[in-house]
Simulated assay, not measured.
Amino acid sequence: MAKIQTTQAVRGTQDMFGETEERFAHVVATFERVRRLYGFKGLQLPVIEPTAVFSRSLGEATDVVSKEMYSFEDRGGDSITLRPEFTAGIARAYLTNGWQQFAPMKLSVHGPLFRYERPQKGRYRQFHQIDAEIIGAAEPAADVELLVMADQLLKELGINDGVTLQLNTLGDTPSRDAWRAALVGYFNDHKNALSEDSLARLEKNPLRILDSKDPTDRPVADAAPVIDEYLS
């Protein structure tokens, strides 16, 4: 009689039990308590969304959309995607439910996300994130509030030692446009040193070349024009 093979878990997923599950639950419970202190309302979102929710917001040229999304056609022929991140789904819910009337909104969500990448130590294809967003507030104080909240969360979890806060900016629209034009000119002058992926990004989203992990691209990307030279 043939031995029945035990079905294994899908690669890049994990079963949590005992201390691991308790530590996980502690992180979630601490986040829930801290977000309430700051007046963030809890939100539950679908695990599946129309693929366009992510391809339109993240951009077709991003690695997430082009390489990492779990997308499939349902029985009705619609393209569906397992959510790879939260922000696009929150924006979709905000628009489709007419929540603009409640702006500014302070929302928080946590749960599983899915990305089809090669699993490495400490990385999974199904992973969990916590997320807090302020929608409809243009004041810099909204960003400050999120940073202060995150700082308190790290302290209450006891993992704030050695944490460094780094701030950057993409500037205003004229600054960003000028920087983008400078990047396109620079990368066009160094086409021969770029990987195939970066050559494709050059046509669609040249800023993504700066994030390339390909060793071929790093010397070129590291010497590229920086936005500080173009800020208004």
Rank of each mutant, 00 (worst) to 15 (best):
A9T: 08
P174G: 10
A223W: 02
V163G: 03
T87D: 13
W99L: 15
D151V: 10
F40E: 00
A150V: 00
P104E: 08
A29S: 12
G59F: 04
A137M: 09
N188F: 04
T96S: 15
N205M: 10
L194C: 11
K155N: 07
G12N: 01
A93S: 15
I209Q: 02
E32Q: 14
E49Q: 13
V226S: 12
I135R: 06
L153T: 00
G18A: 11
R23C: 08
A181F: 03
E49N: 00
D15I: 02
W99H: 13
I209H: 09
D197W: 01
T6I: 09
T87G: 07
L146F: 05
A223H: 07
R118T: 12
L183F: 02
N205Y: 04
F40D: 03
D131Y: 08
L194P: 13
D151E: 09
V184S: 04
E22T: 15
Q129Y: 05
D78Y: 11
L167A: 06
D161W: 07
V64E: 08
L95M: 14
R56E: 13
A93E: 12
D214E: 13
L165M: 09
F17P: 02
T81S: 14
R92W: 05
S66P: 01
G162L: 01
Q166L: 11
A138R: 11
G158W: 04
F40T: 00
L147S: 13
H128L: 04
V226C: 05
K67M: 07
F102E: 14
A223S: 14
A29N: 13
L183S: 05
Q152M: 14
Q101S: 13
V109Y: 15
T30E: 05
V53M: 09
I227S: 12
E133Y: 05
N160F: 09
V47T: 14
L183M: 09
Q44A: 09
T30W: 06
A2C: 06
E156W: 09
Q8K: 11
F102A: 13
A142D: 01
A91G: 07
R218I: 15
M105Q: 13
Q14S: 14
R176K: 14
Y230E: 11
G98E: 04
L210M: 06
T81C: 06
T81D: 03
E22L: 15
Y70H: 08
D222Q: 13
P84S: 05
E156S: 10
L154E: 03
G12W: 00
E68H: 02
Y116A: 05
L95N: 11
G76Q: 08
T7M: 11
L199C: 12
L146R: 00
G39M: 05
S71V: 02
R125M: 00
Q120G: 02
T20I: 13
T7G: 01
K106D: 01
A93Y: 07
F127S: 00
G89M: 10
G185K: 11
A193K: 11
E196G: 14
A61K: 06
V47W: 10
